Computed example of a mutant assay.
Amino acid sequence: MSVDAEKTASKGSNWETVRVVIHALILALIVRVFLFQPFNIPSGSMIPTLLIGDYLFVSKYTYGYSRYSFPFGLNLFSGRVWAAEPKRGDVVVFKLPRDNETDYIKRVIGLPGDEIQMIHGVLHINGEAVDKKKVGDFVTEAVGGRERHFTRYMETLPNGVTYPVLDLVNEGVGDNTDVYEVPEGHFFMMGDNRDNSTDSRFLSEVGFVPFENLVGKAQVIFFSIDEDASFWQVWRWPTDVRWDRIFKTVN
């Protein structure tokens, strides 16, 4: 093979590599924008369902698309297209109504038209107490290796969705509330860690969440690492990765 032929073959090979990379990037962008977006859990408001250090995929298509489905909240249109309302009990990522920028993740408790109230730590929906049963303690490790135990309950919504909640203190600040009337086109969100969650119970902080602000539904945990470690610290994976949580569905 001549030198010119070798150069031509080399250029062709380099261009093929670049083309493959470009196609892969375009495909990844399409998947992220329209199908699944990764999120990580930075706080304990959804413990025990989600832990600090969980990384999960959120389906963008489940509820249709709004301006907040796209990077930088591009104002391409108003409302939602191919809209489908969330079901009571879904774990949802949404944009905080106060700034329409910050990502929050909570559970859908109240639908449009519902009346929601907390009475002595018991959730009431439309005047009826939600079934709540104690199922033992949630155990975590405090500073110094000492175990901490928190009361763990299973809560069952009117549509049959069951999930765990924590009760850290009796008669906490969000355990007794007025009646919240959920406006049309809005949803009432709460964290599963009831005494450590800033959610719709606090109107000036979160309040009712517009349908347009929903980003997607949490589907599956694809990675999980101890909260004191970071994803990029590969050398800590053998001891700090929570292997039993990987590929766990979010319910």
Rank of each mutant, 00 (worst) to 15 (best):
D4I: 11
K11E: 13
W15F: 13
T17K: 14
T17E: 13
R19K: 15
L25V: 14
I26E: 11
L29G: 14
L29V: 15
V33T: 12
P38S: 11
F39N: 07
G44V: 07
L50A: 00
L56D: 00
L56I: 05
K60F: 01
Y61P: 01
Y63P: 01
S66E: 07
F70G: 06
G73V: 03
L74S: 11
W82G: 00
A84H: 13
R88G: 03
V91L: 07
D99A: 00
N100M: 07
D103P: 05
D103F: 11
I109H: 06
I119G: 00
D131M: 03
D137T: 15
T140I: 04
T140R: 06
E147L: 14
R148C: 12
H149M: 10
F150W: 13
T151E: 13
Y153T: 10
L157K: 09
G160Q: 14
T162D: 00
D167M: 12
D167S: 14
G172K: 06
D175R: 07
T177Y: 12
V179R: 13
Y180S: 12
E181W: 07
F187C: 07
F188K: 04
F188N: 08
F188T: 08
D192R: 01
D192L: 02
N196H: 12
N196G: 04
S197K: 05
S200R: 09
R201I: 03
F202R: 15
F202M: 15
F208D: 10
V209N: 03
P210A: 02
L214A: 08
L214Q: 04
G216D: 07
F222P: 07
D226F: 05
D226V: 04
F231T: 05
Q233Y: 00
T239I: 02
T239W: 09
T239K: 02
D240H: 14
V241R: 08
R242N: 11
R242L: 08
K248V: 13
K248F: 04
K248Q: 14
